[in-house]
Amino acid sequence: MGKFLRVMIFALVAVLLVALAGGCGGGAGTKEGGAPEEKGAAPQKWVFATDHEFSVRPDGLPALQDTYGFKFDEVKTMDLGVTYGALKDGLVPAAMGFATDGRIAAFDLVNLEDDKHFFPVYNPAPVVRKEVIDKYPELKDVLGKIGPLLDTDAMIKLNAQVDIDGKEPKEVAKKWLLEQGLIKEEAPAQDKGKIVVGSKEFTEQLILGQITILALQNAGYQTVDRTGLGGTDIARKALENGEIDVYWEYTGTAWLVALKHEKPITDSEEAYQKVKEEDLAKHKLVWLPYAKFDNTYTIMMRKKDAEQLGIKSISDLARVINSKGK
């Protein structure tokens, strides 16, 4: 029995030791990447929060670091939705996310500019069937003027109103259109013809769908709401088959998924022109002017830290990381 007690005591001591060791290691995990405490001080250790996919994709983190010529001290992989919170809570000094996520505004984060054009571009644009445009050429103007007014900040705020504040996409879309002077409070009689509007199922798409519906109604069209279709494949097939007349597609997605190209394009204008040309020729689809914002991967920091360290672009970040300890 003495043996038993000895084992128990040994186990308890082991617990304490391991917990202590783990506490140091794990505890440091919360601090090592923490916010710079002194004004202007860079973090001790540049820890980067990323989702699993981005951490190993060939066009993800490894190539990003090669392109910009720097290396994070440590990479922590976690679920995609968690990276924003990790950054906000000060667990890491930098993280990846998607450029128009509403949490960027809500958590006081900032996108670093991709000054070397590393990330593929994903600007959305209204895509309309040619038949429909031929019948109602006015649509080019009605829907074409929306995109250029939508920049990244505007889209982040719209997404935040839905995702963070819990408002309805329709309400958010209407408020924005009124602010921009694109629609009037009272829509005119809808007697010009019927247009079926689609969208994919996530927040940004739902908002873009509602913006389209309201703009069309304001121009006197009758609309059918088919927003919230489950994903790229479904929305795209519905458009090609004429089940819907218009939805917002991203240039990068169309280029890689619908047009089946292998190599992504990293320049917004180039991507738009190529997709526009090919889609018109092959599928009789018309791409109207694209949105200013680009819903692609982004590298984020806390706004306060980025300002203190004078970091605006990923090149700045690379410079700060490389100058550490010199």
């Binding site: 783990g22 794990g26 995990g29 922590k76 976690m78 919170g85 667990l91």
Partner: peptide
């Protein structure tokens, strides 16, 4: 517990 203890080791443990 992620919202309480943050991310990483402690929460997982």
């Amino acid at each position: 517990f992620m919202t309480l203890f943050g991310l990483g080791f402690q929460t997982a443990v």
